[in-house]
Simulated assay, not measured.
Amino acid sequence: MKPSLPLLLPPLLLSLALLGLRVQRSEEPLTTPALPRRVDGQHATGTAFQWLEDHGNATATPATTRHPLQPPYPHPYRFLLNEPHKCRERTPFLVLLVVTEPGDTAGREAIRQTWGNESSVPGVAILRLFLLGVHPVFGRELGAVLEEESRLHGDLLQQDFLDTYNNLTLKTLMGMEWVSKHCPNATYVMKADRDVFLNLGYLVRRFLVPPKKNFMTGYIYRNTGPIRRKAYKWYVPREVYPKNTYPPYCGGPGYVFSGDLATKIYQVAQTLPVINMEDSFVGICLHALGIGVTRSPWGVFNMHRIQYEKCRFSRLVMVHHYQPQDLLTIWPDFQQTKCPS
């Protein structure tokens, strides 16, 4: 007797996710195919699966003026999965943009059940959206799975660039584009990676009231520069970014900014050479706009893992290196009795 599709699907997705993680961390530069212009409906004309059937994972010859590590931008990327109606009947206080990989269905579900729950902060309107590109190997196979997940949860944004480490900047710009076009009145936006712990309640109470403009905060890097050694995944050659230092910027695992900045960053990004370091590029955009980052108290945004202690975590906004399975373990305890203020 052959096993049914539901029984086969979880191990298939796990295999795809594990292989996708290896591909995601590869240092091989991947370019993006030249594609039709984006469509602003919930789904592109035809499904993402159909688009992948038509185009596969072919790559275009990179422009002679663009370094292979430089993400192709500006480019008319098309939304394969979209949620353009989310803000038409409500204005969220906080739009939560979570960077994720196409095959990470279990990770997204864990985030929905923990800090990504839109009801996690009573009285605060939160909108959660996951950002993803096309898997560079299993894009066709994952297309139908992602379509189904999108119909079930209504929280996936996907454009037709390849989902690789060097294209992470494109994911953030996709989020900026979506907010600027479909949710421009959002009070705040937070970009977060999938391997973090977030305390949105503390974030809102401590930093976001009253509302601000031209505001961005997180773990701030100052006087840092590009890594020029090819052995590192953060390698940025001089052809991509010639200066020796970056402007101040907030670390990529998690930062929050006022909603007005989404449009400003998206617009100025159309005029600047894009680099493969997402968080540094956002700092470059802010510098071009003449807007600085706002300092946060030391230790509130943590770029390294800290052992879980409920009352300590109640006074933190972010802790890096907490995988979705970790979240499912600690979240029930974190939601219980309050700690002393």
Results as ranks from 00 to 15, higher is better:
residue 271 T to I: 07
residue 206 R to W: 00
residue 27 E to M: 10
residue 39 V to W: 06
residue 302 N to F: 02
residue 181 K to E: 13
residue 191 K to P: 03
residue 312 R to K: 15
residue 277 M to D: 04
residue 216 M to Q: 15
residue 288 A to K: 11
residue 258 S to A: 11
residue 24 Q to K: 13
residue 232 Y to R: 04
residue 171 K to Y: 01
residue 251 G to M: 13
residue 320 H to I: 09
residue 93 F to C: 00
residue 15 S to A: 14
residue 206 R to F: 09
residue 242 P to R: 08
residue 203 L to K: 03
residue 134 V to H: 12
residue 236 V to R: 02
residue 247 P to K: 10
residue 89 E to Y: 01
residue 318 M to L: 15
residue 285 C to H: 04
residue 78 R to W: 03
residue 299 G to I: 04
residue 44 A to W: 05
residue 265 I to W: 12
residue 6 P to F: 09
residue 49 F to K: 13
residue 40 D to Y: 11
residue 152 L to V: 09
residue 226 P to W: 03
residue 12 L to K: 08
residue 113 Q to M: 08
residue 181 K to R: 15
residue 154 G to A: 08
residue 117 N to V: 02
residue 47 T to E: 05
residue 71 P to I: 09
residue 107 G to Q: 00
residue 101 E to T: 13
residue 220 I to C: 06
residue 140 R to V: 08
residue 224 T to I: 14
residue 270 Q to I: 02
residue 72 P to H: 07
residue 111 I to L: 06
residue 150 S to V: 06
residue 293 V to I: 08
residue 98 V to H: 01
residue 208 L to D: 00
residue 214 N to L: 12
residue 1 M to C: 08
residue 211 P to F: 06
residue 300 V to G: 01
residue 152 L to A: 15
residue 304 H to E: 12
residue 302 N to R: 11
residue 232 Y to V: 03
residue 158 Q to A: 10
residue 18 L to G: 08
residue 108 R to T: 03
residue 287 H to Q: 15
residue 30 L to V: 14
residue 233 K to L: 11
residue 21 L to F: 09
residue 139 G to P: 12
residue 40 D to C: 00
residue 70 Q to H: 04
residue 260 D to W: 08
residue 323 Q to P: 06
residue 134 V to S: 10
residue 20 G to Y: 03
residue 272 L to P: 07
residue 114 T to D: 00
residue 39 V to K: 00
residue 39 V to D: 10
residue 298 W to H: 07
residue 29 P to R: 05
residue 294 T to N: 06
residue 137 V to P: 07
residue 287 H to G: 07
residue 169 T to L: 00
residue 105 T to F: 15
residue 27 E to W: 08
residue 296 S to M: 07
residue 260 D to I: 14
residue 152 L to W: 04
residue 37 R to L: 14
residue 18 L to A: 09
residue 203 L to D: 04
residue 71 P to D: 08
residue 102 P to W: 05
residue 86 K to P: 01
residue 279 D to L: 07
residue 87 C to Q: 01
residue 57 N to K: 07
residue 128 R to T: 15
residue 202 Y to K: 05
residue 221 Y to C: 14
residue 317 V to Q: 09
residue 258 S to C: 13
residue 44 A to H: 01
residue 122 P to A: 12
residue 44 A to Y: 02
residue 312 R to M: 09
residue 114 T to V: 01
residue 339 C to A: 11
residue 314 S to E: 13
residue 41 G to C: 05
residue 227 I to T: 11
residue 86 K to I: 05
residue 268 V to F: 01
residue 69 L to V: 10
residue 156 L to Y: 02
residue 159 Q to P: 04
residue 86 K to R: 14
residue 236 V to F: 05
residue 180 S to M: 07
residue 145 V to Q: 08
residue 264 K to H: 06
residue 143 G to A: 12
residue 295 R to Y: 04
residue 179 V to H: 01
